[in-house]
Design a protein around this nucleic acid. Sequence first.
DNA 1: CATCCACGGGAAAAGCCGGTCG
DNA 2: CGACCGGCTTTTCCCGTGGATG
Length: 405
Amino acid sequence: MLVTSRRLSCLATQFGRAWVSSEPTRRPPPARPHWMERVESPPVNLSDTHPNQHDMHSDPRREIIGNRDVLREGYDPETIRHRAAEIDALSTLLSPTKVGGITETALLYGPPGSGKTCTTTAVLEEIENEHGVPTVAVNCWDDHTKSRVLYSVLKSLVGQTAYDQERTAASTLLDAVKDAIDEPTIIFLDEADKLVDEGVLRDLYEIEPVRLLLAGNDRHRVVGNLEHRVYSRIGTAQDVEFEKYHDGQLVEILEDRLTAAKVKPDIVSDEALAGIADAGSRDARKAIATLRNALDIVVLEGADEVTGPIIERAEQKAEQDIAHARISSLTASQTLVLKVLFDIGASTSGTIYDEYEQRIDDPAVDRTVRGWLTTKFPQYNLVTIREEENPQEYELTDAARAILE
DNA sequence: CATCCACGGGAAAAGCCGGTCG
DNA sequence: CGACCGGCTTTTCCCGTGGATG
């Protein structure tokens, strides 16, 4: 099943480019700078803390997964597959001869799990290593406010700072960032559509040597209403669009991980792999999470191989882990709104609010609850909005419902 | 030294309101 | 008209700091 020759030949055709074939030089772990923790921290994954890793000496099961690390969220693969065009576009856009030239901004957009982050990270790493161009990456999901973005940028540029992240004025941080930048520098804001205050984009953009890379799910959300206020000043931004992987491509990506993770052969059949790719609904992040969970189930339950039912459970677990973590981060009041939704099913904001108000002593005001329903909860993938209804209705996602039971 | 309190700042909540739809 | 939506603005909340006070 793990057809090595197929993988290699595929690689060869995918990447004729020099920088790709210099693969092995990529990612010297210690050189992994600053923001790496951020990339790893995102939304959480309870199952990441799961079994083995330690105490695996006498455990015969350790044979099953040699290196589970490769399967964790945020791990940067050795090889970027099926993104040759995007890599090409990014490399051209960011090549050192252009950095410092005309200030341009690149806009990367595409659905979740379409390789935006890992592709861009790889290209940036290449540029930093080969050409000495400083690069900074910020995940705006974690750092979605102005001060946090600036703090994060500053920390990447100068290491530890004397500033207190929460307490120093954004303007102070901005000045410090300006001072720290004296040569062309690439700043990559991942999930830029999660920013609360897009003013920070303009602030960063106006620092002369800075070149911005913005990534998000759809172009409209990323540029959206900053079109006039910021975007026009940003000038001609170059778009790089990422599309969902096809199932076949996803299978190859999963095969790479299986090999790198040194998973014992025969645990995951071709058929199972296809099933996992299918469950991932063309989202690489989700597919990998499903694979990881499926293998954990196999290990924990001593199964012989990954089966259909295991894949199904693994898929649900992947979603629920995330939902669980998200729900834990909510306030009691916010959780109550979800419970109301759980009890009464899909409803309009008015109905939800009436019921919510009944159940709590000091309810938040309706505008606030509406804000949660339309922005925060959907972003957390806890609620979906049924826009076809008029007025629109809010409904819990399956994962959220499973947690609230 | 221990407490108290006013202050500065960001983030989140609350308030306001014009607009849409049936 | 009533119910709801969502952009924008204003207010409140919250917390570390630092100076004053007992």
